[in-house]
Simulated assay, not measured.
Amino acid sequence: MRLRIFTEPQQGASYDTLLAVAKATEDLSFDAFFRSDHYLHMGDVDGLPGPTDAWITLAGLARETSRVRLGTLMTAATFRHPGPLAISVAQVDRMSGGRVELGFGAGWFEAEHTAYGIPFPASARERFDRFEEQLDVITGLWGTPLGETFDYEGRHYRLSGAPGLPKPSQPRPPVLIGGTGPTRTPRLAAAHADEYNVPFSSVEDTAAAFERTRSAVKAAGRTAPMVYSAAQVLCCGRDDAEVARRAEAIGRAPEELRRNGLAGTPEELVDKIGRFAEIGAERVYLQVLDLTDLDHLELVAAQVAPQVA
């Protein structure tokens, strides 16, 4: 089991704060540093000092880290055209020496689109149609052999004579698709993804989502392996008092977090991570909401990670 750190900087974080967390992630031997891709805070927070762009952030971190993998959960297809996004991800991959992963989703948070003047297709069907075409374009551009060009004729996107440059450092940055949609999400994951992620769900619901995607992989005749992963909010303490303190810092109740996240003592976390491992999860993304509490990461690195490795 690999443990990855997952941040939500739209809730309030500067680049310097994210850099400190990314460096701690690397120094403490976690597998990866991931961040959300949002432009507006959620819930009862002010979001100060304001949003940071996901791929600009990762470009900076690519030059200031050396080992840890870097990625998004999830870049919104509504934010960017597929051609420029393919260029950005490939460039950051080269800047990092081949450590980038693209978590990619259809987009869902209408308020941030309204706030920043980003078009938001009203129907989920159109968002997924655009998302599917973007997957075709991005992976097609990366996979175009040097000296050849890429053409694409879709309903929403059309490309002609694209050289498919720059090339990423990796043959292809891993693509992550997530969500619990019953039909289209598993099909898209089977067709395009290297990893399928289920966010913020119970072990039982995660297992059911994994099975739907395994069925889609089989139905597609796919032979390439699929990585299965889960994302869970983190709240770990050496005792109940420390768990309660960390829960209060993020505006949650300890018992609610124990039900709906990875919360409790290190022993409790090891037990629940083990249950995710039993259903086939190979990675768990630990959603860290208090980005000033680096002692939290140190505790998990010292008392949880060695027991689940």
Score class of each variant (00 low, 15 high):
residue 87 I to M: 05
residue 47 G to E: 14
residue 14 S to I: 00
residue 113 H to D: 13
residue 102 L to P: 05
residue 22 A to M: 06
residue 37 D to T: 01
residue 44 D to V: 06
residue 109 F to R: 00
residue 100 V to L: 15
residue 25 T to A: 05
residue 66 S to M: 08
residue 74 M to H: 01
residue 87 I to H: 12
residue 111 A to I: 00
residue 108 W to G: 03
residue 106 A to C: 13
residue 79 F to M: 07
residue 115 A to G: 03
residue 30 F to E: 04
residue 114 T to N: 13
residue 121 P to M: 08
residue 13 A to H: 07
residue 95 M to A: 03
residue 17 T to M: 10
residue 79 F to Y: 15
residue 104 F to N: 06
residue 3 L to K: 04
residue 101 E to N: 11
residue 74 M to N: 07
residue 77 A to W: 01
residue 58 L to N: 08
residue 41 H to I: 00
residue 37 D to K: 02
residue 110 E to V: 06
residue 2 R to F: 05
residue 25 T to H: 06
residue 27 D to Q: 14
residue 54 A to H: 09
residue 32 A to E: 12
residue 125 R to A: 14
residue 43 G to I: 07
residue 123 S to K: 04
residue 70 L to C: 02
residue 71 G to P: 08
residue 8 E to R: 00
residue 54 A to M: 03
residue 80 R to W: 10
residue 72 T to G: 06
residue 35 R to F: 09
residue 60 G to P: 05
residue 38 H to Y: 08
residue 119 P to V: 06
residue 87 I to K: 07
residue 38 H to M: 04
residue 80 R to Y: 12
residue 96 S to E: 06
residue 27 D to N: 10
residue 98 G to W: 13
residue 42 M to R: 00
residue 97 G to K: 03
residue 99 R to G: 07
residue 4 R to M: 13
residue 32 A to M: 07
residue 49 P to N: 11
residue 86 A to R: 03
residue 7 T to K: 07
residue 15 Y to M: 03
residue 28 L to P: 15
residue 79 F to G: 07
residue 66 S to Y: 13
residue 70 L to R: 03
residue 122 A to N: 11
residue 67 R to V: 00
residue 85 L to N: 03
residue 35 R to M: 12
residue 2 R to K: 04
residue 72 T to Q: 02
residue 103 G to I: 10
residue 103 G to P: 04
residue 28 L to E: 15
residue 91 Q to Y: 15
residue 19 L to P: 14
residue 37 D to P: 03
residue 120 F to L: 14
residue 4 R to N: 14
residue 44 D to L: 14
residue 81 H to A: 08
residue 123 S to R: 03
residue 47 G to S: 12
residue 80 R to H: 12
residue 15 Y to V: 01
residue 62 A to N: 09
residue 60 G to M: 02
residue 115 A to R: 13
residue 112 E to I: 00
residue 90 A to L: 08
residue 30 F to K: 00
residue 20 A to T: 02
residue 84 P to H: 05
residue 60 G to W: 02
residue 63 R to F: 10
residue 84 P to T: 07
residue 104 F to I: 09
residue 37 D to Q: 01
residue 115 A to D: 09
residue 53 D to R: 06
residue 124 A to H: 01
residue 83 G to M: 10
residue 106 A to V: 13
residue 38 H to E: 04
residue 2 R to G: 11
residue 56 I to D: 15
residue 94 R to M: 11
residue 94 R to N: 11
residue 26 E to F: 02
residue 22 A to W: 15
residue 57 T to R: 11
residue 47 G to R: 09
residue 3 L to H: 04
residue 33 F to L: 09
residue 45 V to A: 02
residue 78 T to S: 14
residue 45 V to P: 00
residue 109 F to W: 09
residue 56 I to M: 15
residue 98 G to E: 08
residue 51 P to V: 07
residue 117 G to W: 07
residue 7 T to S: 11
residue 94 R to E: 15
residue 63 R to G: 12
residue 47 G to D: 12
residue 35 R to N: 09
residue 96 S to C: 00
residue 20 A to E: 10
residue 87 I to R: 11
residue 88 S to Y: 09
residue 92 V to R: 02
residue 119 P to A: 15
